[in-house]
Amino acid sequence: MNVRVLLALIFLPIGAWAQGFAGLGTMAGKGFTEPQPGKMFRFPEDHGAHPDYRIEWWYLTANLTDAEGTPYGLQWTLFRTAMAPEESDGWASPQLWMGHAAVTTETKHFVTERLARGGTGQAGVIAAPFSAWIDDWALEGDWQTMQMTASAPDFAYDMTLTAQGPLVFHGDNGFSVKSNSGQASYYYSQPFFAIEGELHLPSGTVAVTGNAWLDREWSSQLLSGDQTGWDWFSLSFDSGDKLMGSRLQQTDGADFTAATWITPDGQTTAFPDGAFNATPLSANDADVPVVWRVTLPQREVDVTVAAINEDAWMTTSVPYWEGPVTVSGTHTGIGYLEMTGYD
C-alpha cells in the first residue's frame, strides 16, 4: 500500500461524498458542531473556514467559450476535512486540505490534485480579506471581483471573476436537508459570476469568457448511513433562470432530491424531496450516466442534460465525475454535472 492509498483511507470524510459514505454518519460526533436550522449567516466571516465542522468546501465550476465559441468547462475546488474540531499551528494541525482543479474540453479532460495539512500555511482559507489557497493555487478577492489560479504539469489557468448578482441560499435559508433522517449542511452559492481569463493547455493558451458558479457548503455529517453518493446539477437556462438540483442515492434504490429555483435577480424557491427528478438516459463506457432527463413539474421543466465530454472522470484520490453539460428540451442552456458513487 502506498502513501496515496493510505491517504485515500484517511480522507474518508471527503471520500464520503464520492463513495458510499457509510462511515460518515457514524463518524459524526467527537465534538464536531452540527448544522442547525435558523442560522444567521455573517459575512465575511462565513466565507472563511469553520474548523469545528468536519467537512467544508469552496467549489467553483464554470462554463466557458473561446472566441470561436468552442465550449470549455473549468473546476477549482478546495476541500477541508478535520480529524478533530480544532485548529493548531504547525505539523500537529488536525485540519487537512485537498485541492482539485480541472479543465474539460470537448475531447480532453485535464485533472490535478494537491494535498496539504493546515497549521503550516501551505493551505487554508482566511475570511477577510478573503483568500482560499493551497500551494500556488488561490481564490482571492472581495466576492465582487476575484482572482483565481491553479496549475499542473500539463495545464494551468488564470481567471478573473465578477459578481453579477447576489448570494443565494439553498434549502431553508441556507440550511440544506440531505436525507429523511435529518442530515443537513449549510449551503449557499454565488451562481452569478461572470468569468474571463486564460487557459494554458498543451495545445496553447486560450482566452475564454463565461459564467461561473461558486458553492459554499459545510457540515459534520452530510449524508445518512444508507446513502451511497449523489448526482448534482447546476443549470443556467437561456431565460436567465437557474436551477440547482441534487439527487442523493440510497442503498435501497430510492433517492432523496432537493432543488432550488433561482430567478435572474436572485429570488429563490426551494423544493422538497420528490419535486425534482433526474433519470439516467444513457451511460458512457465506464457505466457513468452522461445523458439525463431532468424534470421539475412545478416550473414546467422537462429537459435533457448531456455531457459535453463524456470522459470527465476525476482521477483524484477520491474519484468522481465532474464536467460541463448542455441543456435542451422545454428549457435550453448550459450547466455542470457532478456524479459520485460510480467508481
Partner: peptide
C-alpha cells in the same frame, strides 16, 4: 510529510490498520 511525499516513497506503507490521524498530529 505523507501528504506531499512522492507516491511510493519508501516503506511509509504502514499497513491498512494504521490510520493517518494516528500518523499525523
Amino acid at each position: 510529510e505523507p501528504l506531499t511525499a512522492p507516491v511510493g516513497l519508501g516503506p511509509v506503507s504502514l499497513g491498512q490498520d494504521n490510520d493517518l490521524a494516528g500518523f499525523l498530529g
